[in-house]
Amino acid sequence: MKQVFAWRSMLFVPITNDRFIQSGLKQPADAIQLDLEDSVALDLKAEARARVAEVSKQCHEQGKDVIVRVNRPWRHLVRDIEASVGPHVHALTLPKVPDAGFVRSVAEIIEEVEIERGMTPGHTRLIVMVEDAEGLHNMNEIAAAHPRICAMIVGAEDLAVSLQMAVTPDSLYVPNVMAVAACRRAGIAPIGFVGSVADFADREAFQKTVERAAALGFEGAFCIHPSQVPAANAAFAPSAEAVDRARRLIKVFEEEKALGRWACTFEGRMVDAPVVKQAQRVVEKGEAFGL
């Protein structure tokens, strides 16, 4: 079975804001996402880069995986990569990815920096963001562009600007389902949900949004506010009850299979090989997240 994606919740933290960093470290997020892009003013970009090594080490020492969202323009991006690639940064998030060639060029630069710093090539993974019409057109190729890619997400706000549409469940449904299919084809994790990450005030609504995302096949989500983290963690990991039920289903199926029957019933429903594979995935995810 495919390895379980490790980050149910990836909490954005502006790297120039010490108060937000300390608050973020207190949250149960699976990963802290240090932001060099939208939350950092242009005149603070250099200061932000200078802090990556120190802050990523601090996050690592407190048991947090670290992701860094870099900038898109090449002049900023190259500097961001040089500032971010290091032993305590697990992945870079690439915004506004237009095509597979762009990803391969970025990966080449990352490998050069890793080798220069005595790191194992391949240490730094990539999360790619599809945020415009060109990226949407090239989504399948982007997802499979390079072995460093571990996940892909649709950036709702920027995509809405590019397509001149509203940010609604109707407008975002098709791009997100396309992303799930592209990721599964490429063997990477689809992350995100059908909606805007900016909608954090209504916690009950956000809970329903991420639960729907999990049902659609997504494996984790970006969070811009600490209140979103518990909802994402709960949605993208099975409950203890679901894990227990899956184990019992598998046990019944294996007992029937030993008698030569490759289909059976469990709690009034038919069980065959695809249903068992789904149950095995529930057990694997539950074990990965400590259930």
Rank of each mutant, 00 (worst) to 15 (best):
residue 3 Q to K: 13
residue 5 F to T: 00
residue 8 R to S: 00
residue 9 S to H: 03
residue 11 L to S: 05
residue 11 L to V: 01
residue 14 P to N: 12
residue 18 D to R: 15
residue 21 I to H: 01
residue 25 L to P: 03
residue 35 D to L: 12
residue 37 E to A: 12
residue 39 S to A: 15
residue 39 S to V: 05
residue 47 E to A: 11
residue 49 R to I: 10
residue 60 H to G: 01
residue 60 H to F: 13
residue 65 D to M: 01
residue 72 R to P: 00
residue 77 L to I: 07
residue 78 V to S: 15
residue 80 D to I: 10
residue 86 G to K: 00
residue 94 L to R: 03
residue 100 A to M: 09
residue 105 S to K: 14
residue 105 S to A: 14
residue 108 E to M: 08
residue 113 V to K: 09
residue 119 M to S: 02
residue 120 T to Q: 05
residue 127 I to L: 12
residue 130 V to A: 07
residue 135 G to R: 07
residue 136 L to S: 11
residue 146 H to V: 11
residue 149 I to T: 05
residue 153 I to V: 15
residue 170 D to S: 08
residue 174 V to E: 15
residue 176 N to V: 10
residue 182 A to F: 09
residue 185 R to Q: 15
residue 185 R to E: 09
residue 202 D to T: 07
residue 207 Q to S: 15
residue 208 K to W: 05
residue 210 V to T: 04
residue 212 R to C: 08
residue 214 A to Q: 09
residue 221 A to F: 04
residue 222 F to A: 08
residue 223 C to G: 08
residue 225 H to M: 06
residue 227 S to I: 09
residue 240 A to F: 04
residue 241 E to Y: 06
residue 242 A to I: 04
residue 243 V to I: 10
residue 243 V to Q: 07
residue 246 A to F: 08
residue 253 F to N: 01
residue 258 A to Q: 15
residue 259 L to S: 13
residue 260 G to C: 11
residue 261 R to H: 15
residue 267 E to M: 14
residue 268 G to C: 11
residue 285 K to E: 06
residue 286 G to F: 06
residue 289 F to T: 00
